[in-house]
Amino acid sequence: MSVRGRYFRSLVAAVFAGVFWVDAALAQSGEAGCRFEPVEGRQILRCQQGLTIIVEGGASFTLEDRDRNGNADAVRLRRKALLIEAPAGGVQGGFVVVTPQAIAAVRGTKWAIDAGQGKTSVFVIRGRVAVQRPVSSAGVVLAPGEGVDVERGTGALTVKRWPAKRVSALMARFGQ
């Protein structure tokens, strides 16, 4: 198995290890090492270890502390989008986002993930992100400027370079 394959499998496997649920409202009071900062129609979630999550207004998600060390290392995203910046080495074991259609895992990067209407879209700004369906061991690794749309089903995931218009529309949702 390639190094990339082992990296991907270890990050994805970690999401299923002991999960501790932290509601976003509790995170505001310091649970999971995070605090919210409201910013015009969205919130910025700043966590220990340098992790920053910009939350689109109306997003539905739950923070998780898989290794029970008091710091967020995963998110279950149900609706809308998050823009995540996870510095290399900041989150021990990497950072994972789980949606109904996809699992996306990283170690040091800046990327966006959008869940809704039967699909999850993942776009990478900096670094690399491994993406797979929850019921599949096959996945893809995205590089900067690449994205993937993960819909329900079992077909292969197709990595595409996203056009500037699509990237701009996504980033505008975060005030970027």
Rank of each mutant, 00 (worst) to 15 (best):
A24N: 05
G89K: 02
R66C: 03
D23Y: 11
S137K: 15
A104E: 12
P163E: 10
G89A: 07
A74T: 11
V129R: 00
A27E: 10
A74L: 10
R66S: 03
V167C: 11
L45W: 07
G147L: 05
Q49N: 13
V12C: 09
G145R: 11
R6G: 03
A102E: 01
G5H: 15
G90I: 03
I84N: 04
A112K: 03
L51H: 04
L11K: 13
C34H: 10
R166W: 08
F36M: 10
S60I: 00
L170T: 08
M1H: 14
L157D: 06
F36W: 15
R42A: 08
E40L: 07
R152C: 08
D23V: 11
V122S: 05
G147M: 02
A115W: 01
K165G: 14
A13F: 03
S121P: 09
L82D: 01
G108Q: 03
F174N: 02
S60F: 00
A24C: 05
R128K: 15
T109I: 01
C34I: 12
D73M: 03
A59W: 00
V150A: 06
R68A: 15
A104D: 06
I53M: 12
I53A: 02
L26V: 07
A14T: 04
G145E: 09
T109Y: 01
P38T: 04
L83N: 13
K160T: 15
G41L: 10
R166F: 11
Q117G: 09
E56D: 10
A32I: 03
A164M: 08
A74G: 14
T120I: 07
K110P: 05
I113D: 00
V159C: 08
E64N: 15
W111I: 14
S60K: 04
Q48E: 12
V96N: 04
S29G: 11
V106F: 05
G41K: 15
V106K: 01
K165C: 14
F8R: 03
T62L: 07
W162A: 14
E146G: 07
A25C: 08
P100G: 11
R46W: 08
V15S: 09
Q43H: 01
C47L: 10
G175M: 09
A59I: 00
E64V: 11
R66W: 01
V135L: 10
R46C: 13
